[in-house]
Amino acid sequence: MGAIQGFEIRRSSAALRGGGTMLRQQPTVAKYIDTSICIGCKACEVACQEWNDLPLVKTEQVGTYQTMPSLAPNFWNLIQFREIDTGPHGFAWLLRKDQCMHCADPGCLAACPAPGAIVQYQNGIVDVDPEKCIGCGLCEPGCPFDVPRYTARDNKMAKCTLCVDRVTVGLEPACIKACPTGCLQFGDKSSLLALGAHRVKQLQDDGFASAAVYDPPGVGGTSVITVLKHGDHPEWYGLPKDPSVPTTVSLWKRVLHPIGFVAMAAAIFGAIGHFMAFGPKKPVDTAKDAGKEV
């Protein structure tokens, strides 16, 4: 799917100038996931496949209540299951919906060298344009959540679009529509954060003292916010504790690029300056062809 008409582009990969007009007011949207009431029914997985016209993939028995070992280029929404030893008082069965987190500061977009292949709309949705994707695979090192997957043909990146085609026309994403327990919600991020805070309070009252909303500040927050009963241990859910755009991506884009440009310019202007200061080094023959310059 290409960039969506009617949506302002906030940021675009490998862009020198440009982007949207910033005229439209499009508040940041979010997907809200309450892991505490997910029953692992996989309705969201099926809805995702169906809406996005993805082929029904053959499931893989991994020995748990999980459909597939991990996300795939044609499988953008996975309910992950983990059995965790929570300490002396027992264990927990943790279900978490895994998909693109739609970071406010997307590492994939920062790492992408193809202009416009990864865009972030004004409403926070991070989308891929396969027509512009060159299949280099550089977005993967940029992602702290291990989301990008590559197609068999031309290595194009594929991931959850937050159903941007539905959102444009005022519908909620397909996974949200299919969820039977209300554990998935969609709307303005600010109101869903308020809902999350309310739910966290309930969980704390129920004895889950460390319950929290996962909205990691290291990537500027995400447009997929997750309520965790064990908020002090996001890694129990397969979420990184303090994700950020990897240092190598910053090193490469913010340090190596300026150094490279300066070095390239210095080489060219250095050569010109040297020529002016020291001139050409001409041989003048003194013996055979005396005085003749070459």
Partner: peptide
């Protein structure tokens, strides 16, 4: 990219 880990590719 699919044959090598992203950590290696970062470096």
């Amino acid at each position: 990219p699919k044959s090598f880990s992203w950590r290696l590719r970062q470096v």
